[in-house]
Design a protein around this nucleic acid. Sequence first.
DNA 1: GCATGATCATGC
DNA 2: GCATGATCATGC
Length: 454
Amino acid sequence: MSTNKSYKTREEILVKGREAIGIPFKQIDQTNRLTTGKGAIGSVMEESWFGYNINNEANPDFSSAGVELKVTPYKSTRNGLRAKERLVCNIINYMEEYKTTFQTSSFWKKCNTMLLMFYEHKENLSKGDFTIDEVVLFSFPKEDFLIIEKDWEIIVGKIKNGKAHELSERDTLYLGACTKGATAASVRQQPFSDISAKQRAFSLKESYMTYLLNKYILGNEADERIIKNPSLLKEQSFEEIIVSKISQHFGKTQQQLLAEFELKTSAKNVNELLLARMLGIKGRLSSTEEFQKANIILKTIRVNSDDSITESMSFPAFNFQKIVTENWEDCDFKNMLEQMKFLFVIFRYNNINELIFDNILFWNIPEPDLDEIRTVWERTVAILKQGVQLKTIGKRTYNNFPKSSENRVAHVRPHARNSQDTLTLPDGRQMPKQCFWLNNTYIREQLQKNFSPK
DNA sequence: GCATGATCATGC
DNA sequence: GCATGATCATGC
């Protein structure tokens, strides 16, 4: 089956692509592809707009120009425009990928230059009414290229270590290894272990796509970048660079740091402000280009002098009525956890109760622990469906959601402004907003696992 | 003392 | 005004 022969240059491809802007897909579709399931819109553009047969070749769609066609959705949210999903590139052949270098890898061969066609997914419209809104010919800028190369090496490193079955999309920053297959049971062989591994594909993370979208569609100005000189990334990983910039401050008290950076604030996010100063960032750390592209979430952890941790870690409140309509496999919470990379900023109380800046840790949830969270999530949904049991004693109202004592990893607890800050339960009653929390004991366990001598 | 319910402070 | 990250505080 041939790839497209009619478009030989990048310019021709871009011009033809841009001509599609504003035309509803139902007018473009000549082969009734829109009625099919996932990927229907991409198929329409390939067949009916560019006029070539759908293929799954290793070469880019426009092979002579070296351009891969990608049609990708975004959505409008109260936080602005966001990519609706990760951009899935090519399936990883564990048996072959480790034999190449990044430059000769399957991912780079296929996707180093892409024609990105963005369309808005609107909740109340059908696919046929959607239109392409923006088209760009995209090549990776140097600062991203170097991070993506490292990401690829991390993924291939796991294959080489016989750990393809332990791959997770959260291992990396921009280029992820996302699961790909009809069911979670879609597995493949790996070269250095007998354990079969989930089928995965190289993909650009949702957060990375959101950044591209805002840059290209909205024309938003670039945000502050932490690593001003991308060449540094040739020597060290992003995480290593951050640690090397910050480690000189380990051991200082919070008071010393506040004085050193001339910060006067009672804000609960002082530690984020301090970290930003250490990195030479003027604005918020979470607004930097790298943090946005990789969806790095900063969390402060205070460790007591006896190594215990008092507080559990909260997440956004969930909507009772929405969560009961979801399945774990495609629910909001799992999706969020799968996409998050955490930066733990660790402070430790010394024996005279001073708060000492102790360390930082880039962390993500290990796959087996995500399964633990699944049980908590499913119990929560089951309880909501049965009707939560509420018992008021004095000023406090007790419930029967999963407690921290019931699961090693997570529990459910209120997360509201006060007890009047409620949402409607599926049965119509009101209840203070709740969220999933990572247990304080679990956080402690994770810190010990990552910092104990190997 | 700890688990769990309750609430604060900020930024957008 | 609300979401969010962070922290307080009651009562078992």
